[in-house]
């Protein structure tokens, strides 16, 4: 018990105004050893979702409520709309906006978080402004952005980016501030250039927390993608859902909700997958420390 790293419990949040969840039920440092145990784990993980789907299927089969159509009809409509139908074009527009907006915001967040860490006076001065922009609920800016830029994809992407910046920026900053001073002394003794230091010490050291920020940014981005489409667009999945609701096409609306659930889950799993590969060294060392 000689490790001096910051405590495992709530590592990043307590020190600053950052947002982000490192806790994730999918990522467990425990390694599964035998094949039997692995099969058991998979079964444990999937039986309940499947059971719930089956219950939904049968409970809704004879449903006459206009709001909750039978699952079988939702799935049929889903096939007709999203797989072979016209709605798949909405999907392309949504995903493009999400990807561009999120990546742009995340990049700005990491770069400016690093700059703020490097220049403490700037950090101190800009702190209240950044905090204000961070806590400002980003959807509140949407009407202002419509007034400024009219309706268009660029504005949607801009708003998604804007919302995605702050969790990443604050977590980057906090992660870098939390680095052990001894490491910098070592780097100085080894005469590492500042650029080398940045790429081989600062960024890797802060990366678990940057990842937490990136994940929070991803969730904000998805919310903003849907909101921008609902309020200020003529295409996209949010527009599709709201349009279906307006004309009271409830089953069609349900397919949109289903599609959004799939997008959200897929984005999350994709993120976890990338995170696992990039931060493999971190999870390994944590597992070693824990055992």
């Amino acid at each position: 018990m000689t490790q001096t790293i910051t405590p495992e419990i709530v590592p990043e949040r307590a020190a600053g105004a950052s947002i982000g969840e490192t806790t994730d039920l999918l990522v467990s440092p425990r390694r599964v050893r035998s094949r039997g145990a692995r099969v058991r784990n998979v079964l444990l993980a999937v039986w309940l979702p499947i059971a719930l789907l089956v219950i939904w299927w049968f409970a809704s089969a004879s449903s006459t409520s206009p709001f909750f159509p039978p699952l079988s009809r939702i799935l049929e409509e889903f096939w007709a709309q999203w797989i072979v139908g016209p709605a798949s074009m909405q999907l392309g527009s949504s995903l493009r906006n999400l990807a561009l907006g999120y990546l742009g915001g995340a990049l700005i967040g990491v770069v400016f978080g690093t700059l703020l860490w490097r220049f403490p006076p700037v950090r101190q001065v800009s702190n209240p402004l950044i905090y204000f922009l961070y806590v400002l609920p980003a959807p509140a800016l949407l009407p202002a952005m419509i007034a400024l830029f009219g309706i268009g994809e660029l504005r949607q992407i801009a708003l998604i980016s804007f919302g995605a910046i702050w969790p990443t920026l604050l977590n980057t900053l906090d992660g870098m501030r939390g680095l052990d001073q001894v490491k910098f002394d070592t780097a100085r003794a080894m005469k590492l250039s500042p650029v080398r230091q940045l790429f081989s010490l600062v960024l890797p050291g802060a990366s678990p927390q940057i990842a937490a920020g990136l994940r929070a940014s991803l969730q904000t981005s998805i919310i903003l993608m849907v909101v921008t489409e609902m309020v200020a667009a003529k295409q996209g999945i949010g527009y599709f859902i709201l349009q279906a609701q307006t004309v009271f096409a409830i089953t069609t609306m349900w397919t949109g909700i289903l599609m959004l659930a799939i997008i959200g889950t897929a984005a999350n799993y994709l993120f976890v997958g990338v995170e696992r590969i990039v931060l493999r060294w971190y999870y390994r060392s944590r597992a070693l420390n824990n055992s």
């Binding site: 039920l25 919310i223 609306m253 949109g256 959004l260 659930a261 959200g264 999350n268």
Partner: peptide, 20 residues
């Protein structure tokens, strides 16, 4: 058992159900 269900629901953006 519940972990996967919670993860799935967490991944659904809450505003998706707003129109409903």
């Amino acid at each position: 058992s519940a972990a996967s269900v919670i993860e799935i629901f967490k991944a659904i953006p809450a505003i998706a159900i707003l129109p409903l």
